[in-house]
């Protein structure tokens, strides 16, 4: 039973992860990412971490991916255009390199931990009470620092994303004014005019 659930959600997560990186439309990539995150949440429950699984669904799919969708909507970004100069070679190198990496890392982990057997899940390990005790005693300082980090991130995001106010120094708004580019800009200048 557990093996069947693991196999189903592992295959689903790998399949939709491939959709995330391969689909030319970013909105569909983001929606596939939602499926991947849900599948991983199921695997987290199988690993005896229901609290982390709940956080995964709430924080990742509920907040972060909604933020992604908002930005995609705000900037009105569509499909990627056809690949530019030098792109196919880069793609094949990345694919082969990543395949080797996955093979070596997977084999390493498999050889190290293949024969390991798991103890049964204990109530201690599953207990959210113990987890929060740990979080607010041993890890109290990192917890507070992460809160501060989130505050700084929100302020910085606001400061960067807000429209320039009148009277502030505003940089030139046209593309190509700041830097001239060799091939890419000439090839598809005007192709992405709204």
């Amino acid at each position: 039973m557990e093996v069947a659930i693991f196999a189903l959600f592992a295959l689903l997560s790998v399949g939709f992860a491939i959709v995330v990186v391969a689909h030319p439309h970013p909105v569909k990539s983001t929606m596939s990412m939602v499926v991947v995150l849900f599948c991983l949440a199921v695997l987290f429950v199988l690993l005896g971490a229901p609290f982390v699984a709940a956080l995964q669904v709430l924080v990742y799919t509920g907040a972060i991916l909604v933020l992604f969708l908002f930005v995609l909507m705000l900037l009105n970004i569509g499909r990627e255009r056809a690949a530019g100069v030098g792109q196919p070679a880069q793609r094949w190198v990345a694919l082969v390199g990543a395949a080797f990496f996955a093979g070596f890392l997977g084999m390493l982990l498999w050889r190290t931990h293949g024969p390991d057997t798991l103890d049964a899940l204990t109530p201690d390990y599953l207990s959210i009470h113990r987890l929060s005790w740990e979080l607010f005693t041993t890890w109290l300082l990192p917890f507070e620092l992460v809160g501060l980090l989130l505050l700084v991130a929100v302020v910085a995001a606001y400061a960067m994303a807000r429209a320039p106010q009148p009277g502030e120094m505003t940089p030139p708004a046209q593309p190509g004014v700041i830097a001239t580019t060799a091939a890419a800009d000439v090839a598809d200048a005007g192709a992405d005019a709204p």
Binding site: V14, L43, A83, A98
Partner: peptide
């Protein structure tokens, strides 16, 4: 077996690497 989870993690990480190296859209 716990190793299956680890191999799955390695595979997902590599898929993410391919995406980060080959895609051109910043958000992807």
């Amino acid at each position: 077996p716990i190793a299956w989870y680890m191999v799955l993690a390695a595979v997902l990480f590599s898929i993410g690497t391919v995406g980060a190296l080959t895609r051109r859209n910043g958000i992807t």
